[in-house]
Design a protein around this nucleic acid. Sequence first.
DNA 1: ATAAAAACTTGACGCGCGCAAATATTTTTT
DNA 2: AAAAAATATTTGCGCGCGTCAAGTTTTTAT
Lengths: 343, 343
Amino acid sequence: MSQSKIKNMAEFASVSGISRPTISKYFNNPGSVRDSTRIRIEAALEEYDYRPNIYAMNQNRRLTKTIGIVVPFLADPFFTEIARKIERRCIDAGFSPTLFSAHGSQELENSILDNLRSLKPAGVLLAPLGRASDRAAIEKFCRDVPTVLFDSDLEGVGAAFVGSDNHSFVTQSVEYLVRSGSPPCFFEMRTPANPNANKRRIAYISIMESMGLTPEVIKVDGEGWAFEEIGYAGAMRVLSKGKLKHDTVLCSNDRLAIGFLAAAYETGLRVGREPGCHMRVAAHDDHPFSRFTCPSLTTVAHDYEAVSNHSVETLFNLIDKGHDDNDRTERLFPARLILRTSA
Amino acid sequence: MSQSKIKNMAEFASVSGISRPTISKYFNNPGSVRDSTRIRIEAALEEYDYRPNIYAMNQNRRLTKTIGIVVPFLADPFFTEIARKIERRCIDAGFSPTLFSAHGSQELENSILDNLRSLKPAGVLLAPLGRASDRAAIEKFCRDVPTVLFDSDLEGVGAAFVGSDNHSFVTQSVEYLVRSGSPPCFFEMRTPANPNANKRRIAYISIMESMGLTPEVIKVDGEGWAFEEIGYAGAMRVLSKGKLKHDTVLCSNDRLAIGFLAAAYETGLRVGREPGCHMRVAAHDDHPFSRFTCPSLTTVAHDYEAVSNHSVETLFNLIDKGHDDNDRTERLFPARLILRTSA
DNA sequence: ATAAAAACTTGACGCGCGCAAATATTTTTT
DNA sequence: AAAAAATATTTGCGCGCGTCAAGTTTTTAT
């Protein structure tokens, strides 16, 4: 850069020898101008570092280049991981992702959507709280803003849903556990925050029954998103009282299992599939930490990559093709069994 | 709300019976108008839901109400936790926090700052990558935008630094380990991403020497932010070869320790302070998961609350009092030993 | 009650850019 | 080489709000 700072587009237009509307066109879509002029603009851009005022840009544009990403609980590395992938793809497509976490609170989720609305985003990728969500508020939001739900479905809300196939998770875990040992009981929260948990329980029951086995569900108390703590406390109660009749436990998700394993360790119960072990534990999600539990956790993995990619693709499609209200799409990706040492 | 939608401030001014400049004043600071008019405005606000266009607002304002929060690696729950606290306090103070993660990449960190600059934020709270940061780029950014560094210091950069006192961490862990058993060796990454790691090693050496003990540092290879994996792989090498002369290991941070404990478990080494255990392991940070390791991890905790509060306070002060270049403040909070079962 | 201060109103300009219509230029096609 | 198509340019308005100056009203202080 040479000279003094350029303060607006008109000035930049004059020093670069191109008209302002063309410059404007360039910034809205560099590919929309002739190659020769694009090169001239970019040359000038090198020399005088000018950047359009995003506020002035967005004021008159009907939609901005912002994409909102909303997750229910960012302290869960699962969401951090998927948010990272989504961010990357949005940036690559020329959008500006903005990340929000509801931190488990309905009030915050609503106020995030409220703020998001006034940001006039091109689209929103929303993983709702689930049971704790204010369905009406989200429905209203989705009417105004192109929104793709992911991870956790609110039936009928939003233009599309992308997630993992809970039935596929449970099929793989239950079938593996049954054929490699004994049938599992199912360990979960009594009032799960997330609709996936309900689907997993239902899948567990139906799969067990279809195999001619008796399902048994252990429900532990606890509210909120501190799943490890809830799993730990619940497991301590179950294990210490010797109430566990099964030697195989399938936890609804990895975070509960992390707590369960901590409780088992503390109780002196050896978990694993080798001889000498007292019990086996498996779960679902392939949480980033489940590789480092003791013992390492046998689990069923989301196809993170596919879910994040397809969520973004769906949103992009929605953004430039628009949406007819009556074709809400749902896409579920199958899961993959990850054999480790806990089961 | 009744009637049809209000589309701009002039319209809202006329329906509410107040002049537009006063309405404008109200939105910039509700306390700056007379109580009686504030009540009238808020009554009208109830009836016609109008919200000023934030883009038009920010276009002419020199500074916005946005506060940028930048962390190096959001997948680390430590940062998620601190970001949550900071967000909350910003919202309560009437600002709009926006969260960014560099995901461990210098390129991303730079481009975040670049985008942030054009958002004209009132201020920025930045936890830099550390060694991987582009110091010059951050320095330049800090000259334009009021910035408080937290967690990880780049000396001389930014208007202030707020973090934890690494010496305090190590004093507590080493003194405890020495008096309750035998002196620890120090387990760390060879080329740590974070300057805190260096300070901890230096503190370890100086504390050991001041106690008349011989420090021993074990450095393990590995790049990036996958600390658990690095700790695991490093521990496997050390433990399997029986190279470990000490029965007490102090890990530079909890995430390394999580990997270390997984390796110890896999190797059949029993960790803890009870009789029958082969070794003790302790670490630093009080990572949210360290309560659920097997055994639960004895560690030294950040004062999360103090660090996040004081970071925000410092920034708010900076925002309304301005900053004389020559009084960069540094504030370090002491740490607190958390006794669990691993040491 | 009166003066001073504080808050409000009116009117008007500016910010930086989007966008549209009419015209001019370049590139592509035949 | 001429016609058609694509792309640029010029001109100028509009967006919604910040902000200022001058005048008016309301509140507070004396």
